[in-house]
């Protein structure tokens, strides 16, 4: 039963390519260069994290790929097809779950399925609730569930559409530390079963190293790729492993000195 949902896995799809992507916003304080000349290829089935200081364009980049924000230069393709708007082939998990509060959890998960005129949308939704460990909560409303459960329901809602790629915008940002670590494993479990391409924005360096094949560091104003760090650690990963710690050191150093190197104001 549980596995049948994974069987629909259709080989390797979900390769995302960004070519010379740029994004400018017009605001009342002038033009803001949110993204500039981004070139990045995300391999099908890989787990990639975007990390960087706030305002460096991580979320903009994710929204551009989702088609929620139009880009002003370059192009984004998914499996060779140009992206020109939002679609169910790219699932999106919002930071504040964004479940529809007027629908029950089951109806939320079935929303996209009904949109696609799927037969047995509710049965399919129940299957996804089971996979994400929400059996028995199908009739609850979002406000009755904890933050972690809502985020899982949101994951189920996106995954039910069988997307080629899943875009996660700080999906665990609003959760407490323990729920967060638990959810990291949950997301990895789903990913390892389905091998959906995952692109996740996060503020948490440990989370990025723990989960990703590759961590992309962005630097702000204008948002550009500072560095790409491949994480070559066996899974499941150990947060206290020496190599894990050295990856953390590398990334933190790069983040701290990203953009400019500041001289200390004075020496003792």
């Amino acid at each position: 039963m549980v596995n049948s949902a994974y069987d629909s896995l259709n080989g390797r799809r979900g390769q995302i390519e960004l070519k010379n992507v740029g994004k400018k916003y017009k605001t009342n304080i002038g033009e803001v260069h949110a993204l500039s000349d981004i070139n990045l290829t995300i391999e099908a089935g890989s787990y990639v994290s975007l990390i960087g200081a706030s305002g460096c364009g991580k979320s903009t980049m994710l929204r551009v790929i989702a088609g929620l924000t139009p880009l002003t230069a370059g192009s984004v393709t998914l499996d060779g097809k140009e992206i020109d708007g939002p679609g169910s082939d790219r699932g999106f998990v919002f930071q504040e779950h964004a479940l529809f509060p007027w629908l029950t959890i089951r109806q939320n998960v079935a929303f996209g399925l009904k949109e696609a005129r799927k037969q047995n949308a509710n049965d399919e939704a129940d299957k996804w609730l089971e996979i994400t460990g929400l059996t028995g909560f199908g009739n609850a409303f979002p406000h009755q569930l904890s933050g972690g459960m809502c985020q899982r329901a949101c994951l189920a809602r996106s995954l039910a559409m069988n997307p080629a790629a899943l875009l996660l915008d700080e999906p665990l940002g609003a959760l407490d530390a323990f729920t967060r670590m638990y959810m990291q494993d949950e997301i990895l479990r789903v990913w390892e079963n389905r091998k959906t391409t995952m692109l996740m924005v996060t503020h948490d360096v440990d989370e990025a190293i723990y989960m990703s094949d590759c961590v992309v560091l962005l630097s702000p104003r204008p948002g550009r790729i500072e560095k790409t760090v491949e994480i070559e650690l066996p899974r499941p990963r150990d947060r206290n492993d020496d190599r894990f710690i050295s990856y953390r050191k590398t990334i933190l150093e790069s983040l701290h000195f990203a953009g400019f190197r500041r001289e200390p104001d004075f020496y003792i």
């Binding site: 169910s88 919002f94 964004a98």
Partner: peptide, 23 residues
């Protein structure tokens, strides 16, 4: 966000009005 979430689930204008906006 509700409209955006709807869009990423394949909702179009009709659903934006009747399945998201009005409820």
């Amino acid at each position: 966000t509700y409209f955006e979430a709807g869009s990423t689930l394949g909702a179009r204008r009709f659903s934006h009005i009747f399945r998201i906006g009005l409820p």
